[in-house]
Write a protein that binds this DNA or RNA. Structure first.
Lengths: 194, 194
DNA sequence: GAGTTAAGGTACGACCAGTACCCTAATTCG
DNA sequence: CGAATTAGGGTACTGGTCGTACCTTAACTC
């Protein structure tokens, strides 16, 4: 059909675009190699030459969809900053992107090398960075003790939110739960680290 | 072949036993309906008459394997009790049972009704109970303020441990991380809730 | 312009979920 | 006790999908 034959980066782009569309339309289960090849106007050879299996292609396509940065909030209040970050995460995880991410995590099944592929191998997780930035500003304001600036403290609210997703099913976590995570756990924890 | 033909509970028992063996030997991926039927000396009809799909059978078989109770520790120290509970969970989650559980969680994919099946629908989660019991005793001893007796406080250490499993791959979490979860998060949190 | 690399086309093997039928043993009930 | 009903056994099949093999052909390299 085509006068020309795409190669290299151009073809790879078309494949990843097709895969990303499929992920958004039908989720991870709908990402079949045959269908990706069909939509990209190529065949499975071109896919398997680049990614060793379906999951790897899914991860690559997801990373391309989700390549957005997180600018940390700066409301002037630790409580509001924390709520903001939790609400953003709640929105993302209950959106199609969250569904895809969960599907990929399921497909990965815990294999460390694929797990690593899911995050950007270069820079650290921007979400972790955002929590630390929020804590840093709070200590600078004198709103939190310096001892509160600890990665495990920063990770606690998201860990609790993840737990909610694990226990309940797919739907978004009620805002009241986010408030509770902040007021009953995060802030007391910050306060307790003197 | 058989002089007799098994029915009802007896057959169900044989099926669940076969499924449990398969789960332990080959994990969730190895649990195929054909093989379960073969090992149980029956056929897929008997399986599909009882469970609507593979995942449901997997859950039933797992529940049968994992039917053990958790007696809360009582060392006389909140710190030691918490470490004990975390170490138990770490052992379980890095054992074959943990692998099976992760595989099932992946297969369930977040469907609330199946998620509910994974826990005993009757009584509350014994692990949650254990954490609350540990906290209750600590407040009784005066080791923790009464305000620390809160379900979300009780859930925090396990949430952090789960996060470790999610980020790293399958292997057991180093003990030092458990200590850090207790010393850097759990105890300060309890202290901070005045 | 010859040689190498990568794309395209196509077919296929293997595996597995879930379904369909039909036959027969065990249980139930008139 | 015998007929009717229920559930197990045997078996085959559809449909979907991954991953592979092989051959042809276009594009790029030197």
């Amino acid at each position: 059909m085509a006068a020309t034959r795409r190669r290299g980066a151009e073809l790879e782009d078309a494949i990843l675009t097709a895969a990303g569309e499929l992920l958004l339309e039908q989720g991870v289960a709908g990402l079949t190699m045959d269908e990706v090849a069909r939509r990209a106007g190529t065949n499975k050879n071109a896919l398997y030459r680049r990614w060793p299996h379906r999951t790897a292609l899914g991860i690559a396509a997801y990373r391309r969809l989700a390549a957005a940065e997180t600018r940390p909030p700066d409301t002037g209040s630790l409580r509001e900053d924390a709520l903001d970050l939790l609400r953003r995460a709640n929105r993302t995880w209950s959106s199609p992107y969250g569904e895809i991410l969960r599907g990929l995590l399921a497909a990965v099944g815990g294999a460390p090398e694929l797990l690593a592929e899911l995050r950007d191998p270069d820079r650290p997780d921007p979400l972790d960075e955002a929590w630390l930035a929020v804590l840093t500003r709070a200590t600078a304001r004198g709103e939190a003790p310096a001892a509160a600036l600890h990665p495990r403290v920063a990770a606690t609210p998201m860990a609790l939110l993840r737990t909610e997703y694990l226990l309940r099913g797919i739907p978004a976590v009620p805002d009241q739960v986010l408030v509770e995570i902040v007021d009953e756990v995060f802030l007391p924890l910050v306060r307790g680290r003197t």
